[in-house]
Amino acid sequence: MKNKIPLSSLPIGAKGEVELIMVNGLLRRRLLDLGVVPESVIEVIRVSPAGDPTAYLIKGSLIGLRKIEANQIFVKQL
């Protein structure tokens, strides 16, 4: 439990392993479809000039997630 942090708090260049997806409904479905599943590894690539969304590398594709989305994904920093 102690090293579980929101994906949104990882710095650029860091990688995290997904532990928990604290969201339901359509957004959960979308995240699962994108490959955000427990144990998958996500890398923070860059933040858009406006500060939101952030681009993440998820299973080989660059995918933009908004902060409110990334706040609800809990990872273990690698």
Binding site: L32, D33, L34, G35, G60
Partner: peptide, 12 residues
């Protein structure tokens, strides 16, 4: 499907 990324592709 993308042979380099089958896991996610097979979801669809």
């Amino acid at each position: 499907t993308d042979a380099t990324n089958l896991e996610r592709n097979l979801n669809l």
